[in-house]
Design a protein around this nucleic acid. Structure first.
Lengths: 216, 216
DNA sequence: CAATATTTTTAGATTTGTCTAAATTATTTT
DNA sequence: AAAATAATTTAGACAAATCTAAAAATATTG
């Protein structure tokens, strides 16, 4: 096995960037990972070579890296732990959704299958975390049957409920909060235009009502 | 500050051994620490020198080491976190008291004052953990007003309630469990003699009733 | 109290994860 | 398509935490 905080962080970065780049087959550049992790590119190169030896990633020199099936399983387990702990912090300990990320970042590295399973059960096997993001189950599968839309998909007359936020960092979440944006709040197309563009684009909405007729 | 898991582990060992050797002024040998931590003596020497530079310990070559006031504060905070997490695992997640030590050993290094305070509050500010050991408060003070006795202090006719166990490791605790020993169970002097000597000596009891008259 | 035995430290090597600077490969531009 | 530019890797250094083997200090014993 030979896990470590750093190795797990690199696996998670590889997963997150791979997803945003078009799925498990996408190659992620070492520079992107370096930016994402706040380290320099050569550090990523050497770590990615370690991940390859551990069987968690594949590395094509000068092309990039991507996760193997085992690496993906590990990544999804980290996501699961992160989101379960965030849920615990918000729902049980009364934290605000904007202040839990850094703590969950530490808690996700705690190594105990039994702990995660018990925590999941204790929280009632939640399907989404406090940011609206889906929580993978014990086998690393999402149960994401929501149909989310970008704010730019809404037209005049539509109302959308905030279901998730794309990026999970304290600054952004505080800013959203200060504009009255929280999970579950409902917004008309018009009201959304009142938000700054970069903020608005971070939201994912569930359509509550529309004036449009025909196919949804 | 510059905390790390290893530095914190050495501070905790220094605290634990110092206590069992007669309080904060006692010098702890590097060999004792090495045994306790499962590393070699030279590793401890170099780490103790680091702790000295950080202001957490004092090192007298060839004599031993002991904590400074700051080091002691850090140690007590680690004990606090360890015992709060153990309480959480047993009382909320349904773990057995013998299986929580290793997980709490990881959780105690999570760094967030707010998290610890919220957890404490969530658990109802418990005074003792599932092994019966007192939990220091946020300022590092024990509220230990129990008067505990060693099994050998009991005489014929006395009944004692198991209030704590001296050592916290899974093997011992499982063994105790298999002999029917759990926190809160009551034992007569005679019944205690039925336990193996080394097991019996790990217990701390609260006197429930006695046939003796006069001073307690 | 001198010789021996034990404990502890120093010296130097190793592993993990990071860095900077230089070399290499890929991409873009003209 | 050659030259310039950008991205990535290699090479080599460094810090943290560990180890083994050897040296130094302390304790024990005859």
């Amino acid at each position: 096995m030979a896990k470590s905080k750093q190795r797990e962080d690199h696996v998670k970065a590889l997963y997150a960037l791979g997803e945003s780049l078009g799925g498990p087959k996408a190659w992620v550049s070492t520079n992107q990972m370096a930016d994402h992790l706040g380290v320099k590119a050569p550090s990523v190169t050497s770590m990615v070579q370690v991940l390859q030896e551990l069987g968690w990633a594949e590395h094509r020199p000068y092309r990039g890296a991507r996760l193997t099936v085992a690496g993906r399983r590990l990544a999804l387990n980290l996501v699961r732990k992160h989101r379960l702990w965030e849920t615990f912090l918000v729902e049980r300990l009364g934290f605000g959704w904007e202040e839990v990320h850094d703590i969950a970042e530490q808690l996700e590295h705690i190594d105990s299958v039994k702990l995660v399973d018990r925590l999941d059960e204790y929280l009632g096997c939640p399907k989404v975390d406090p940011h609206g993001d889906p929580i993978p189950d014990g086998k690393g599968l999402f149960n994401d049957d929501r149909s989310l839309r970008s704010p730019s998909d809404l037209v005049a007359g539509d109302v959308g409920r905030v279901a998730a936020v794309q990026r999970d960092d304290a600054a952004l979440l505080s800013l959203l909060k200060s504009h009255g944006v929280a999970l579950g709040t409902e917004w008309t197309h018009e009201a959304l235009q009142g938000l700054p563009h970069d903020l608005r684009e971070q939201l994912l909405l569930e359509l509550v009502s529309t004036m449009k007729h025909g196919a949804s």
